[in-house]
Amino acid sequence: MKRRNFLGLIALASAIPGAALARPVVRIGLTPVFLDDQTFLNRWQAYLEERLGGRVEFIQRSSYREITELVLNGRLDFAWLCGYPYVRYQDYMDLLLVPIYQGEPLYRSYLIVAAEDARTRTFADLEGRLFAFSDPLSNSGWLVPQAQLLSGGHDPEHFFARTFFAGAHRNVVEAVAVGLADGGSVDGYVYEALARLHPELTRRTRIIWRSETYGFPPVVARRGADPELRERFRDALQGMQDSEQGRALLEQFYLDGFEAPEAELYTGIERLMRRVERA
């Protein structure tokens, strides 16, 4: 309830004229996925600045919540969010684009354990052990395993001996690899990307379960953002797959491009949310 009140206040604040001043700088929020490569971000920034004809600033925060709330309180123009916070706050932000990953705007959640842990085969085997989630606002890193536990008839609060949030999917993989946690749930897309960038890290883990597909983390715009800027930003992202430079950048992401999302893309996450949050 507290959060709702707070969000209500934010909604009020953004409704006040002049609160959302047309800024000369386009601010884009990024959730901590595997994008810790500043050189890559600089190149992407330069690409976007050229396309948008103005300055672009990437905003990175350690948790999903901070980025989400910066969108909610209008401090960010655009953000690349997880599907779960988008679904949760879809009344306060606009869905702009969804990335295409392996030909579809979809991804999965992976359940991983340490590579040498041969006896753990299912979720049930992790009972009473240590488990790492990525972020409380992550679909693949929290919502999916929570829902999975519920559907298996377990109480997520008491199923594990100890759980913790590692903050980023990459950290979950590392926590499982070094043995800090016995199991962890990660974004399948990030895991696959890591498997290519740092095979020595993922090799020390083993995937024991893959979830069904969910809508890929979308790019959202704050409610009330300049429609013209929004158009130009959409064009810039969608145009990436048409230019050589843009394709090179997309390749770095292991993405095929961006597309306009279909309406029911995030119904799967909505369903999960309803089940987990009701619990």
Partner: peptide
């Protein structure tokens, strides 16, 4: 062993 990113 091989170099590993996770550090114990």
């Amino acid at each position: 062993g091989e170099p590993a990113i996770p550090v114990e």
